[in-house]
């Protein structure tokens, strides 16, 4: 049976959603884009295989490249999330700084 892009992407998204759980809304758009690329790569592999133009080793290398590319994107999302947490903590500390430092008499915060 021939591969179908929409089904491939939908299946991947469905599986990933369960892993990401509450963080899913943050990564959904990126995941869709990356899974689409992986799906397109798999369709290309299928097409080339039917034409006898690709070996299993070549197919594995193509897929590995797409997976690594997707991992690079996810690492950026992780970094952006950490930066957001950092910003939130610093904003929280800043807002109480004067009151706490004055009350304690130390520049603690």
């Amino acid at each position: 049976m021939a591969l179908e892009l929409t089904k491939l992407v939908t299946d991947m998204l469905s599986a990933a959603r369960g892993v990401f759980e509450e963080k899913w809304p943050d990564v959904k758009d990126y995941a869709e884009a990356e899974f689409k690329k992986i799906g397109e790569c798999l369709l290309m592999i299928e097409r080339l295989k039917l034409q006898g133009k690709i070996t299993e080793e070549q197919a594995r290398l193509h897929l590995e490249i797409q997976k690594n590319s997707a991992r690079t994107v996810l690492l950026t999302l992780e970094g952006l999330h950490i930066l957001l947490v950092e910003e939130a903590i610093n904003a929280a500390l800043k807002i109480i700084r004067d009151a706490v430092n004055t009350a304690l008499g130390w520049r603690l915060v």
Partner: peptide, 30 residues
């Protein structure tokens, strides 16, 4: 080394573009 055809290049280019963009995006976010 194993033999690349022109039709295999576009997805490879996209993969590298995406990866470099991701690195740059994180750097700029800093």
């Amino acid at each position: 080394k194993l033999g690349l055809t022109a039709e295999q290049i576009p997805p490879l280019r996209t993969a590298f573009n995406v990866a470099f963009t991701a690195v740059l995006r994180l750097e700029n976010a800093k």
